[in-house]
Computed example of a mutant assay.
Amino acid sequence: MKNLLHLLLLGVVMPVPVVQAQSAAKLAGAIASPNQRRPMQVVEAACGQCQLGLSGKSCDLAVRLNGKAYFVDGTHIDSHGDAHANDGFCQKIRQAQVQGEVLNDRFVATYFRLLPEADKVP
């Protein structure tokens, strides 16, 4: 009976980290692999509140497309380094290669890669 209880507890406790790891891998895979059949864009990326003039209560990733800023879904501001570092999204506007579309006044990213400072496109 004691062994059965241990097996049941392991069955309940062990799947939680596995589920979290799978969700993180799924999200990373969606952002890390560009779709060769969709157009790639180079956009300005920064904190929407600190740098791009959007309203909000906390620091959130945003991009500027065709002169208009949009908050980003599909990746997070902290997924691309420390937002408050000297080169972070809250301190300066950076450039990123992206794929995705604007839906409901938000940019839904299916690919997002922050460009190094040296790779800036004029």
Rank of each mutant, 00 (worst) to 15 (best):
G81T: 01
K120S: 15
V16N: 00
T75F: 02
M40F: 04
V121M: 08
C50A: 09
L115W: 11
Q36L: 14
P17M: 09
F71Y: 15
G11E: 05
A25D: 03
I77Q: 03
N66V: 09
V16P: 09
H6M: 14
G81V: 02
F71W: 14
D87G: 06
H84A: 07
D73T: 10
L9N: 11
V12G: 10
G100Q: 06
G29E: 15
Q95I: 03
G11C: 04
A96C: 01
R106T: 02
G81M: 06
G11A: 09
D78M: 14
T110Q: 04
A24S: 13
V121L: 11
C47Y: 05
P116A: 01
I31P: 00
H84W: 14
R64K: 15
E44A: 11
V12H: 01
N104H: 14
Q41R: 10
Y111H: 12
L27R: 14
Y111V: 02
D78V: 10
F89S: 00
Q91S: 13
Y70E: 07
Q51T: 05
A46G: 04
K120A: 15
D119V: 04
D87K: 13
L61G: 05
A28R: 00
L114P: 00
C47T: 02
A118T: 10
D60V: 11
Q51G: 05
D60C: 13
F89G: 03
Q36W: 12
K68M: 05
S79M: 15
A109H: 07
V63Y: 07
